[in-house]
């Protein structure tokens, strides 16, 4: 049983990174549908650097950097040239998928040693809990720290207040003298960095090789998770574990001979997202309280 829970935790990590990064971008009012593309760019860069230098840690930084850089392209078009965010985001996913495949072509067929596990002294010796919580690779701890950081910054700091102001009413934020585009640029690049880290987790830990399109749709699940979590960081963490849990449960159910069709269980995470969307939209106040009012809207300083 604890092995299964461990698998749930590990399979959730890419989702936690990518979704909490996207959450920050969306709270600043930018909808970036390019998460899948940014994850793939992060994954291929992480693998290339880890393979070339022999250091998975350097690979992790490369993944973060590549994700942020890819997000920079998105920012250039949507913020600099005021293009449609939905169309640009979709284009970014297609672009990232293609470019990562091109960069990764010579990397196919190689394997690396992934990130090592870190056993926290004393704590990792606790039965069961020690294995579940204190024997992970560095990125698992980093994921939790980043979620905490996002929550703290958003809810308890001036920076968070500015991000939310820009996302909720960019005209007022502009009138108060804040640089709407500057804040959004940083938020989008942060989102890209986190997506890059999420992508990097695949070739650095989960499946230590590169293969084209290896994220297989996890970027889209991350996007759904942000809505599922109603734009709250800690709910992203919980939601990612629920999504991961459902995935593993349906696999384990098959191994144990449950009679629920696996197709139905594969569908559950998406069904859950739709249900959450329905519940949110039923309660207007709740929806207004959480979803950024300017999400997806283009900002023109002149108006």
């Amino acid at each position: 049983m604890e092995q299964l829970i461990l698998t749930v935790i590990l399979t959730s990590v890419p989702l936690i990174f990518a979704a909490s990064g996207e959450l920050i971008a969306e709270r600043s009012g930018v909808l970036n549908l390019g998460v899948e593309g940014m994850m793939l760019m992060g994954a291929v860069s992480a693998f290339a650097i880890a393979m070339g230098t022999g250091s998975p840690i350097l690979g992790m930084f490369a993944g973060a950097f590549a994700g942020a850089l890819t997000a920079g392209i998105f920012a250039f078009f949507t913020l600099g040239l005021a293009t449609n965010q939905v169309a640009t985001g979709l284009a970014l996913t297609i672009f990232g998928t293609g470019l990562s495949g091109l960069i990764g072509a010579p990397l196919v067929g190689h394997a690396i040693d992934g990130l090592p596990q870190i056993h926290i002294p004393m704590l990792s010796d606790i039965p069961i809990l020690g294995m579940l919580l204190f024997q992970h690779d560095i990125m698992v701890y980093l994921a939790v720290i980043m979620v905490g950081l996002c929550a703290w910054v958003l809810n308890a700091t001036r920076v968070g207040l500015i991000i939310r102001a820009v996302g909720d009413n960019h005209d007022s934020a502009h009138a108060l003298g804040y640089s709407v585009l500057g804040v959004r640029l940083l938020a989008v690049m942060f989102g890209g960095m986190m997506a890059g880290l999420g992508g990097a987790y695949l070739p650095l830990v989960l499946t230590p090789h590169w293969a084209e399109g290896m994220t297989a749709g996890r970027g889209w699940i991350a996007l759904a998770l942000v809505v599922f979590a109603s734009w709250r960081p800690w709910r992203v963490l919980g939601g990612a574990l629920v999504f991961g849990g459902i995935t593993i449960m349906q696999l384990a159910g098959q191994a144990r001979g449950w009679t629920i069709p696996s197709q139905f269980l594969s569908m559950l995470p998406y069904l859950a997202t739709i249900i959450v969307l329905v519940l949110i939209s039923r309660n207007r106040e709740f929806a207004l309280a959480n979803s950024p009012a300017c999400l997806g809207r283009i900002f023109h300083a002149g108006k």
């Binding site: 049983m1 996890r218 696999l251 191994a255 001979g257 696996s262």
Partner: peptide, 27 residues
């Protein structure tokens, strides 16, 4: 033998997850 249907030809992470589940179940 127990069978896990991944419902995909190619999804490395899900294949790895399914393999871990098999191992956890004693395979």
């Amino acid at each position: 033998m127990s069978i896990i249907w991944v419902n995909s030809w190619y999804d490395p992470v899900k294949e790895a997850d399914a393999a871990k589940v098999h191992i956890a179940e004693g395979a």
